[in-house]
């Protein structure tokens, strides 16, 4: 029998009501070293990645968000009780520091999906006249396109940061992690600033109609639960 681990909490003495976890197993609050951990029993060796399981994991973590700011564990965290106890005991100062950082905050997510506009592409193509071969012209277009995208991603990241920096406690930004995902940002926002943050992001959206924004939140601070540890992930196919 293993434990499926959802999140770490502070200042929670009991769950406010019955909570169903992965595979419908009841979630309970374990106390280790004054910290609370939401867990449920799990009988299998791996956790299937399904819509239902992902949503169950998220719902359990979210179930305490109105009372405290939890530190979420990653989906699929299966441990023995002894492993969990050792982990908490050995890393208590780091975990408390991480809890302190996120205390009173929620995570807000901003994603920008964008491609170099036709106009920009044409500018790049026009500048290719005079190159000797099609191959070189194509290579040059490719490089210029990448450089243009990189420069614009950086510029947009700086602009977004400036727009919300007075309202956030932390920020994690990833630029161009793939062809279409131009920018992905997670903002750690004190709950007291949430209304103002939303107003500010609405303004941000109005300022750049050329960009496609995807805002979501509030989330538990998944992106700020970031104690660096060695780990191994196994993907099985069921």
């Amino acid at each position: 029998m293993k434990l499926y681990v959802y999140c770490l909490v502070e200042d929670v003495e009991a769950l406010s009501g019955p909570v169903g976890g992965i595979s419908g197993a009841p979630v309970r609050l374990e106390k280790i070293e004054d910290l609370g951990i939401l867990v449920s029993d799990f009988n299998d060796d791996s956790v299937p990645v399904t819509h239902e399981n992902a949503m169950d994991h998220a719902a359990v973590v979210r179930s305490v968000l109105d009372r405290t700011t939890p530190l979420p564990f990653r989906f699929g965290t299966l441990v023995t009780e002894q492993q969990l106890r050792s982990y908490i005991t050995a890393r208590k100062p780091a975990l408390e520091s991480n809890l302190s950082m996120v205390r009173g905050c929620v995570e807000m997510s901003v994603k920008i999906i964008w491609e170099v506009s036709k106009e920009k592409e044409e500018e790049v193509q026009e500048s290719d006249h005079g190159l000797g071969t099609t191959f070189l012209a194509e290579k040059r277009r490719e490089i210029m396109g990448s450089e243009l995208k990189a420069a614009q991603a950086k510029e947009i990241s700086t602009w977004l940061h400036k727009s919300v920096s007075g309202l956030t406690r932390g920020e994690k930004v990833s630029l161009q992690s793939s062809e279409k995902l131009f920018l992905s940002a997670a903002h750690l926002v004190p709950r007291a600033n949430l209304k103002q943050y939303r107003e500010q992001t609405a303004q941000v959206r109005e300022e750049r109609p050329d960009l496609h924004f995807l805002f979501s939140g509030p989330w538990p601070p998944y992106s700020f639960a970031n104690i660096e540890l060695e780990f191994k992930t196994q993907f099985g196919v069921s």
Binding site: F75, L78, K232
Partner: peptide, 23 residues
């Protein structure tokens, strides 16, 4: 957004995360 958050982020306990992909 839920998948992006729960699969990519969060605390990791030293050891293994074992998940299976059916869909």
């Amino acid at each position: 957004e839920t998948l992006d958050h729960v699969l990519n982020r969060g605390l990791v306990i030293a050891g293994e995360i074992t998940i299976s992909v059916a869909d």
